[in-house]
Amino acid sequence: MADAFLGIVISAMATGLGAIPVLILNNVSPRLKSLLLGYASGIMMAATTFSLIPESLKSSDIWVLSIGMLLGTFALNFIHSKTEDLDTSDFKIFSGVDRKTLVIITAITLHNLPEGLSVGVSYGSGEENLGAIIAFAIGLQNAPEGFLVGLYLIHQKMSKVKALMIATFTGAVEIVTAAIGYFLAAEVAGLVPYGLSFAAGAMLFVIYKELIPESQEDHQVKFPTYSFILGLISMLYLTIHFG
Rank of each mutant, 00 (worst) to 15 (best):
E127L: 12
K58Y: 13
T49A: 08
G96C: 00
T101I: 06
E214P: 06
L76F: 03
G7D: 01
L70K: 07
Q216H: 10
M235R: 09
L238M: 03
V161F: 15
V192D: 15
P224K: 05
M203S: 06
S89I: 09
S118K: 08
I43P: 03
T83G: 13
Q141I: 06
L151N: 01
E217G: 11
E115S: 06
S59G: 11
I180Y: 00
L196C: 05
A14R: 02
L151G: 00
G195A: 04
Y39Q: 03
Q220P: 10
V176I: 06
F242L: 09
T73F: 04
V176C: 01
A186K: 15
M13W: 14
G126I: 00
Q141W: 02
L236V: 14
I93D: 15
D90P: 14
M1I: 12
K209P: 13
A46R: 02
G124M: 07
S56T: 03
A167D: 04
N26M: 09
G120Y: 01
L238K: 01
S118Q: 08
G96Y: 01
K222Y: 03
L25F: 09
E127K: 14
A19Y: 05
D61V: 05
F228N: 11
E210A: 02
A200E: 03
I43L: 06
E214D: 09
H111I: 01
G195S: 06
S118G: 12
M235Q: 09
R99L: 08
G195D: 03
N27W: 15
S125I: 08
L117P: 09
L52V: 11
L17T: 08
R99E: 14
V64Y: 13
I166N: 07
V28G: 02
M1Q: 15
E187G: 13
S56N: 02
L70N: 07
Y237E: 03
G72P: 15
T225A: 10
L37I: 12
A19L: 08
G201N: 11
L236R: 13
